[in-house]
Design a protein around this nucleic acid. Sequence first.
RNA 1: GUGCCCGUAGCUCAGCUGGAUAGAGUAUUUGACUACGAAUCAAAGGGUCGCAGGUUCGAAUCCUGCCGGGCACGCCA
Length: 555
Amino acid sequence: MLTAKREQIYLEIVKVLKRAKADGQLQFTEIPDFTVEVPREKAHGDFATNVALLLSKTECKAPRQIAQIIVDNFSSGVEQLEKIEIAGPGFINFYLASGWLYQILPLVINEDEKYGCSNFGGGERIQVEFVSANPTGLLHMGNARGAALGDTLSNVLEAAGYEVTREFYINDAGNQIENFGKSLEARYLQLLGQEVGFPEEGYHGEDIIETVKNIITEVGDQYLELESGLRREFLIQKALQEKLSKIKKDLVQFGVEYDVWFSEQSLHDSGAITRTIEALQQKGFVYEQEGALWLKTTAFGEEKDEVIVRSNGLATYFAADIAYHQNKFERGFEKVINIWGADHHGHVARMKGAIQALGYEPEKLQVILMQLVRLFRGPEIVRMSKRSGEYITLAELVEEVGRDAARFFFVMRSPDSHLDFDLDLAKKESADNPVYYVQYAHARINSILLASTEKLASAAEIDFTLLTEAEELALIRKIAEFPDEIVGVAANYEPHHLTRYAHELASLFHSFYNSCRVLTDEKPLRQARLYLVNATRITLRNVLGLLGVSAPERM
RNA sequence: GUGCCCGUAGCUCAGCUGGAUAGAGUAUUUGACUACGAAUCAAAGGGUCGCAGGUUCGAAUCCUGCCGGGCACGCCA
């Protein structure tokens, strides 16, 4: 609705500009990249454009003078356009006939759970890789943030018309797995009464002990007889299985389900890494030095080259990740999004370089870096240490504050911002908790609809022009913005705008509720307001759905 | 030392592809429940947008330098 109207205005302006140029009133050689947007201030009309300001330089005229030329040439190509005004330094404000927005309401009701969806993405295939935690432990707050962001972004991309694949890359290879094996073995032997030391760099967490206890319950002491290498391998297999199923379960509890779980080890086993390295060699980006193979990432602006095969013959994590990305592109994804912790930022440029070396456009890879999460209980910071295994896990978080609050809080902030997560606030069932604020609006609507015993009237029976209060119009406008909002989030990868939108929508509803009685005695007005309330309900429910937050009917 | 992120109201943060009077929540103060849920609403106060220059009709937004905080700089992942 908004989009269509904006386009109409935009095209009309372009027409006017061309005509003015043909008449010699304007001299520009190229139409500048101007905008038509909904102004922040209501007093500035329904839409506004900055085109006159942008033209002022090339025209050598005052912006307001140019605006006047445009306004004078404006014809009636835009329906419902009531008034055009020049304002401020040279903005042109467009005022539409009051009530032009009413058309959005029947549309919302008809589209229902599809309201907000569009075909912006045109069915393009896009892959979102997120969390991708080491399967050697449990999910921590950083993983949780990634899970909330990745899943919400995926939901939004789907709503915007992309075909999305959610993927978890399992780091089940390399040194950490070695290390994991040593830790498991030490615990195994200790639990069976042997006096052995624990590896300095090992995984000290309690959860490893639990895992080993479970293994002992299953296999008893029969691994004691085995040669150490074999014993570790068995322990690793068992433990990985258990850890992964726990990770999966915890993510499901968090509302996150993946389409693909991709094993790093499988890239080693299948020879994919070798093939990728050969491809890079063929293109001349690989050389040998001091027994190792290096990738010439300096060819793509990096400060130094990177090792892809160590002198001990083992491929590095980087090599595996390159093979993984090649695999992604071979599967036909047109765009690939990775959500990584900020501690991996050094990896971004070289990954893009590697992609370029393979002959793909580096822009196809989009990395969202997220800053760290700090946990608080009120003013007290919650100290955590991954090394010692003392940290709060995703499962514990969901247990403590609930999935709704957790997901909302993680998405609330820009990924670029450090996130201070206050457990006390997230648990609070009160006004200062933004999750409840939004959910409350939904529950409240539901109880109005319950209280009204009559059947909702159809759009044809309703006189929408009765909705004239400022609160009503503001609410309708916000509802109308929803599809645009989704496209914006999908285009710029900014899921945090969604929580903001949800809050604003709820807020406008509460204001409306407090100033306009819905269940009034005047039937036509009551029907119109009930219709608006129902449209609000649908929009709220849909935005909460994208966030992975429930829309309760009662609280 | 080099690279990336951050610095906006007392606090937590939006706004950053340049646009009109810099916003929200919270906290503080004051009002509103004998009608649809007060987990709500209405209103007030609160700002050198880290500092200094520059670019231009216009800068929180772009550029340069500096200050403060975080992260990363491995034949780890």
